[in-house]
Design a protein around this nucleic acid. Structure first.
Lengths: 206, 206
DNA sequence: ACCTGAACACCGTTCAAGT
DNA sequence: ACCTGAACACCGTTCAAGT
């Protein structure tokens, strides 16, 4: 009579995410995850082959509720905006997972489904061949970069404060811009950058 | 009579970069760096306080020849393009350093000087206040994302091949786009994405 | 069938000692 | 003043053993 598994893969992923949210990416170790679940370290290897697989589990779990259906509004740039904001919303509560998502972007099923939908919007807008490749990769590059920047520290975080304290003689504009940065909300920054990319894409097909 | 230091900080950085180029980021350890230089591990701590400082040294070394002067061509988007391409050119031979650069973006002197110049171009183009913050961060988000994508694997790399082998029933567009991706050069991809962002920026001031 | 604990080959870093 | 080696508290993972 087989003893039932004491764990759902879901619970393992949730525990790992809880650790990341609490202690950061560096806090996620096989030992810490096992302890969070009240298991021995080696018990985890019954559920994942190695640490890499645990990280993939984390990615899928964080995006488990991501709506990857194609928005069908009349303006295609708005549809891309909706898709982009859905990703950001899913990650809002688990920002520090972002580096794992970038590393697993080609293996994570949720990401692949999202990408298929983004391509559907681009295709309907008239992109094809090399243009579609460049458009998708350009959008994804912005998303990855913007989400990563947010995950590494808020616009008003300590790094920006250091720049705000730079000598005015050497870095007048950077110093001034860093000071101004504190007044821009994270939402406005993301949406503003996204609008730049979307306007650039629109210029590509017109 | 003080014994002369057996090492220039430059040589330490160069050795660390050589390891990264050869064995990847994971290959860079304090022990490996010391061995590369024929020193004991602990000798390194006479030159850097910790591993973090070694990584900062790597960032400065890789960008040591980065020209951060402000291009003074008549078209400001072209000037931003030149600045962006200079960064990519500096990193071309050391792509795997990119994650370290992103992590140290607010401490690396070479990055700060570059950013000051990018801001000079944006300011001359008429950006100010919150618009300038959003414009800079949008451009930097694209650059970071694009350079990181390149550093994690070529457009024609194994990850793309996996996507090209996806089931046509579930991922028709992604599969097709991944197949097409192999025909787009890394240069064209980067420049194409950059053009999207620059056109979007131009639309912001007109 | 599922879980555990010891052990191995690694990390970064502290500390006391050598020349 | 500069460098070394042992040691400590960590990693991920292998393997043999327990129930």
């Amino acid at each position: 009579m087989p003893r039932p598994r004491s764990l759902q893969p879901d619970r393992l992923a949730a525990a790992a995410v809880a650790i990341i949210d609490r202690d950061g990416l560096a806090g996620l170790t096989m030992r810490a995850a096992a302890q969070e679940l009240g298991l021995s370290t080696m018990a985890l290897y019954r559920y994942v082959a190695d640490r890499d697989e645990l990280e993939l589990l984390v990615c899928e779990w964080v995006l488990r509720d991501l709506d990857a259906t194609v928005p069908d509004g009349p303006i295609w740039t708005e549809n891309l905006k909706i898709l982009s904001q859905r990703v950001r919303a899913s990650l809002a509560a688990h920002q520090r997972v972002v580096p794992l998502l970038i590393a697993n972007r080609q293996r994570c099923h949720a990401v692949l489904r999202w990408t298929e939908s983004a391509l559907a919007v681009l295709t309907a807008a008239g992109f094809d061949d090399a243009d579609r490749v460049v458009a998708l990769r350009g959008l994804v590059a912005y998303l990855n970069g913007a989400l990563l920047q947010e995950s590494l520290g808020a616009l008003a975080g300590p790094g920006t404060l250091v720049m705000a304290a730079l000598p005015a003689a050497d870095f007048p504009l950077l110093r001034d811009t860093a000071r101004r940065a504190g007044t821009v909300s994270a939402d406005d920054e993301f949406d503003g950058g996204l609008s730049i990319v979307l306007r650039g894409l629109a210029a590509m097909v017109s």
